[in-house]
């Protein structure tokens, strides 16, 4: 299950999500999107606890956060 759904086309590489994550889950990748911004990337998905701090700080609604729920 992917916890972070990232709309790379909307990302502006501002890095606020990277700073907001206390677990180093995100990082700006070397890849750039159509606007020429380095896009945020999930580099440590296993460390993610779906706290959504990254999404809260994102000005462009780039990140949709999912959490695993026991059936």
């Amino acid at each position: 299950m992917k916890k972070l759904i990232i709309s790379e086309n909307l990302c502006k590489g501002c890095g606020l999500c990277v700073e907001a994550c206390s677990r180093g889950v995100l990082s700006l990748s070397e890849r750039t999107n159509a606007m020429g911004y380095r896009v945020t990337e999930c580099v440590a998905p296993d460390k993610c606890i779906s706290c959504a701090c990254c999404a809260v700080m994102c000005p462009d609604c780039v990140i949709q956060v999912h959490r695993e729920v026991k059936a």
């Binding site: 502006k12 590489g13 606020l16 779906s50 999404a55 000005p59 956060v65």
Partner: peptide, 25 residues
């Protein structure tokens, strides 16, 4: 089974915002 805990609120359109990177608008 998973649950969405954070998504774009319905009142916002899908238009990319013209604000500068990291602008709090």
């Amino acid at each position: 089974m998973d649950k969405i805990v954070f998504r774009k609120p319905p009142l916002l359109t899908d238009a990319p915002m013209h604000y500068c990177p990291g602008c709090t608008h």
